[in-house]
Amino acid sequence: MSSISMLSMEDQIALENQLTAFLQKSESNWSAIVDKGGNLFVQSGDTGDLDLSILCALAAGSFAATHELAKRLGETDFSALYQEGRSMSILMMALEHECLLIVVFSLQTNIGLVRFYAQQLTRLINEGLGAAYQSSLTAEPLQVEGDFDGSERSVFS
């Protein structure tokens, strides 16, 4: 299954709406779709001052490490990872196209409810990701004006 290299505005809005509806039903705080490299695709909800880049990088790394551990224990299927916290908990679920669903929720709800709606959501999101993947195959590559390869040009200073 190939990974997705771009997301159009339409795909973004459709996926975001699905996450928002899921947050309302499951009473979760925040939800996101990231790829297994840690790139943030879509997110909905509130995480306060948390740096989302860090959150996504750690989630992708954590899921990958536990997946590898499960494989070494002989498990052939690894679809979800749950961390139960005192006030905030995290559920991660594998999606198609090398993506990952991350859900952060508080004591206001419970893992049973979150997982129930998350399983429904993954089916919907997989369809959306499939459509996004198909459109990324035929999309024109991004090209903008400018010579970024100039040897003297500084990207960071």
């Binding site: 400018g146 010579d147 970024f148």
Partner: peptide
């Protein structure tokens, strides 16, 4: 390394 990666998106490159 950043310039090498950005060059991919340059029309002139």
């Amino acid at each position: 390394v950043a310039r090498l990666l950005l060059a991919k998106y340059s029309k002139s490159a």
